[in-house]
Design a protein around this nucleic acid. Structure first.
Lengths: 242, 242
DNA sequence: ACCACAAGGATTGCATACAATTTTGGCGCA
DNA sequence: TGCGCCAAAATTGTATGCAATCCTTGTGGT
């Protein structure tokens, strides 16, 4: 390795520490290293990242906007614990938006972007052949990245941001309600969608996306209200002791 | 006046001052009382609302998330100055989402919600008969409210939030690029959409929404790159002195 | 044993103080 | 006059202190 190899380092000369912390927390939430309902103590998080509460609060506010964190006044911030109804709304939103993205993407996609898609798929299939919780987390991540790439190619920055939020929340929902049995969203779906996109058939890609989302949602058990962390189980659920 | 007269005071015992300031600023931006590009000085805003910079920063961060404010590190917050491309993306997003809302709304709409729609339309037509910039602002507001009501009736909280952002940005775009000539978005469109919804014909309502959005966008002059406030004109535009 | 309640501790909301950065204004010089 | 440079002023980024609120826990009464 030569010095030239390192010269590429993009100079984030001025870093926005709040956004860095936000990204770390988001990763942890989506990967479910932070369980839903977990209290995010400002001082504690600040100590972890070696910043003051001021910065932490900015990060938490950002995550609250994305729906990954719920804040209650004078009580603090908690990792979101999406209800089945919220989960349904997430997927309903995706059903509405993603076919439109496919239409736009099919028209605009360049050969370079096709290559990027292929690389993604390759990465996914590698993860599929691995076992263990780490691989499964990476798999959920990778699956989301496919949809995010679709949104990027579609070329609408607003919809891309919406999709970023929806994908993050989807990952949380899958981690919460997913029947690990069926492993996860079918990898084959993505390949078929890409094929349609390559042929410029955005409409078919959109229909495939719809069934793909159906597959994902079918793998969820949205009846399940258990495994809720104590307090939230009693507060949000209609428990025996209310 | 007796003591009892005062007892009614609705207890916003704990108010979130940051959100109040956010709402005020948003209204001012959407009504264009704050011109695009205007610098939002933290201390200045804080003095106006009699709060510290801390809460002002929270409000500004919230508006930045909605795309109504752009922040630059160490430089401050500025009222968003949407480019024609951003404007197009706003309306493209609405074209994608609103027909889906119409479908859902047509199925779920109650008689009470129909009445609310009628009331909205009544309000709109009253504003149409008035002249002057104040009435025009209120008209843009009211027109947006129609679409927000549609989103509420559709019953998806996530899409409602997306629409809130899109409507706010639309209002800003209309204020920026609107040819006041054609007054504004046709009021008749809304009546037709409501009629379709009442008949439960969500599909037709969706199609009418699409042409309605076409009408709105057709009334814009997105070629216009003038009236940009100095700095932004030079930074974002490919000026002579780059 | 159970409940009500109060004191203490912990945590958040907000204001303020200080550091880092940018902008402004002026001064010298060509 | 016009340009470049530097110091002062202004503004934002961050840390910290204090007040308000909530939660816990222990205590007394029934």
């Amino acid at each position: 390795m030569t010095l030239a190899d390192q010269s590429f380092v993009a100079p984030p000369l001025v870093e926005d520490r709040a956004m860095i912390i936000r990204d770390h927390l988001r990763d942890a939430i989506v990967d479910r290293r932070l369980a839903p309902g977990t209290k995010l103590n400002e001082a504690e998080v600040g100590a972890l990242f070696e910043v003051s509460r001021t910065v932490v609060r900015a990060a938490l506010q950002a995550l609250a906007f994305e729906g990954l964190v719920k804040t209650e006044r004078n009580r603090g911030a908690f990792v979101a614990n999406p209800t089945p109804e919220e989960a349904r709304q997430v997927f309903a939103s995706r059903r509405l938006i993603e076919p439109g993205l496919a239409l736009a993407a099919a028209q605009r996609m360049t050969s370079g972007e096709i290559a990027a898609f292929r690389e993604r798929l390759q990465h996914e299939s590698e993860l599929l052949n691995q076992r263990g919780p780490t691989a499964r987390r990476a798999e959920i991540h990778a699956s989301g990245d496919f949809h995010l790439l679709l949104a990027k190619v579609a070329g609408n920055a607003i919809l891309l941001r919406f999709m970023e939020e929806l994908i993050a929340r989807s990952s949380l929902v899958i981690a919460l309600y997913g029947n690990s049995g069926a492993s996860s969203c079918g990898h084959g779906d993505h390949a078929n969608i890409l094929a349609a996109l390559e042929q410029g058939d955005g409409e078919r890609a959109g229909k495939l996306l719809l069934t793909h989302i159906d597959h994902i949602e079918a793998d969820l058990d949205l009846r399940n209200t258990s495994n809720l962390p104590l307090r939230d189980a009693l507060v949000t659920g209609a428990g025996k002791f209310q």
